[in-house]
Amino acid sequence: MEIVVKLYATLAQHLPPGAKQNQTRLDLPDDATPAHVIGRLNMAREKCHLVLVNGVYVAPSQLDRHPLKPGDAVAMWPPVAGG
């Protein structure tokens, strides 16, 4: 299945060359989870601090369990804050 991956801040360096607007598309197995995305793009798991699937938070403990669906948007950030 194909999903959209959005990587922000320092994680953006893991996007493939030519990626625009901080996003790319990935082909993943049908049973893929956010952890598959992290592994596929060679990211350190502890750096993927904030993970949203279609804007909804996925806890670190659920990264291996949260089932992705075709067309899902997975967005990730390192630890960030603002105000």
């Binding site: 959005k6 922000y8 801040a9 320092t10 901080n22 601090h49 904030l50 949203l52 804007g55 948007a73 967005a75 950030w77 390192p78 630890p79 960030v80 804050a81 603002g82 105000g83």
Partner: peptide, 25 residues
């Protein structure tokens, strides 16, 4: 030692929230 105050805020500032809050809806 905190990843937010030690790295995130100095590097990207508060503006890093633009995409976070937009994605959050």
């Amino acid at each position: 030692g905190n990843a937010v105050t030690g790295q995130g805020l100095p590097t990207y500032g508060t503006q890093v929230l633009m995409n976070v809050i937009n994605e959050t809806g």
